[in-house]
Write a protein that binds this DNA or RNA. Structure first.
Lengths: 214, 214
DNA sequence: TTTTGTGAATTGCTTCACAGCA
DNA sequence: TGCTGTGAAGCAATTCACAAAA
């Protein structure tokens, strides 16, 4: 049945956006929301919103809309963020420091519990964050990942090191990698990699600006 | 005719990836590349690659493939990065510092020529980067954008300030904004906004890991 | 009324498969 | 032979439009 059908990737992306918006609504005290309202907040059609939310089965209430609190719980369950993920951060440079100190991660259920770097001058220093973490050498990566309950890794390392570090992570049993090095990494079976290239986003912006002027 | 047709969004996204890969090929001295090779490097089918590259009209050479150097030029021209964009960075926190010092931006044609922050203790300090820039108060944003030739802005500010800053940027004549605050910003006509939410990427990763285990 | 859920229609993207060129 | 370019086919996502529920 519909329950076990794979959720389309565009829908999953939007689920994250719905969740963010619903959490904003909750802060303002809103209890229910219609597909029309939600769609307007996110620049989507109401039909799109309803189709997306139909992955949960019947959850909306005709004439009323969707209960904010209920939807938040359901979306988190689908996304797998109804729990806390322990995350390893590799790379204690500027980008790494930005991640470690970003409050949004912990409120979303991602807890950076270990930080690694190859630079000896950084090892032993403290990364400020949800709970501050001492920077460890990359050589301790495998052992630490195995010891603590770490499933995800954020890679904020130079391109030249990225594949080697990713391989180490996957060998150590990491299930998912969020890679910020500007290259597509080879992925081992049983693991998942999402590549985020910040320069690519600027290029897309450049294109859209040119397109608008055309 | 085909020339003036809009390029599909998925194709534009992939053009950035082709460009990155082609620049890697160039470094290794490769002169030509087939759609099959390029596809394998990026996990795409050869047909997909050819369809995408067909936006340029006839550029491939049957029996030979595509000339690396030529393709790089063509893609940059389409993306609008065959020139240097002056970019304003708003927010001199950890994330802002990461952008300012990221070498990838300048090699792609994005030059951070001004940095702004609301925090008085940051103003007057120097942000290290391609050419180091002194942090200015946000009050000088409009004047500086008008004075220098600044078309794009990167927003690395708290959610609470993001919309106000974006409005100021657009009023000052900015054409494109890359927003890292975790909310969708309202956009003025004639401007473009791309929203990048780092926590959303982690959620997508979480989902994919759960899915894989299912 | 308002608003959901959903088949049907539509639009858009990807893959196939092959003619044509080097 | 090796490879491109592209119609045609196939598949996926979005939008439409309306019956049903509150």
């Amino acid at each position: 049945m519909a329950k076990s059908d794979a959720i389309p990737a565009p829908t999953v992306r939007r689920l994250s956006l719905y969740l963010r918006q619903l959490e904003l609504y909750r802060e303002t005290g809103l209890r229910t929301v219609s597909s029309k309202q939600l769609g307007e907040s996110l620049q989507l059609t109401d039909a799109q919103v309803r189709k997306d939310l139909a992955v949960f089965g019947h959850l909306g209430h005709p004439g009323i809309g969707y209960r904010v609190e209920e939807m938040i719980g359901r979306i988190r369950r689908i996304l797998g963020t109804d729990r806390v993920w322990n995350v390893a951060l590799v790379g204690a440079g500027n980008l790494g420091r930005a991640f470690a100190s970003y409050r949004g991660f912990i409120t979303k259920g991602f807890n950076i519990t270990a930080v690694f770097d190859a630079d000896p001058s950084k090892i032993g220093t403290v990364m400020p964050g949800a709970d501050p973490v001492v920077v460890q050498p990359v050589s301790e990566l495998a052992a630490t990942i195995g010891l603590r309950n770490i499933d995800l890794a954020i890679l904020a390392v130079p391109m030249s090191d990225a594949q080697a570090i990713a391989d180490q992570c996957m060998q150590a049993g990491i299930s998912g990698i969020l890679n910020f090095a500007p290259m597509a990494l080879r992925v081992a079976p049983g693991a998942t990699i999402i590549n985020v290239d910040l320069a690519v986003h600027l290029e897309q912006l450049s294109f859209r600006v040119c397109e608008l002027r055309r």
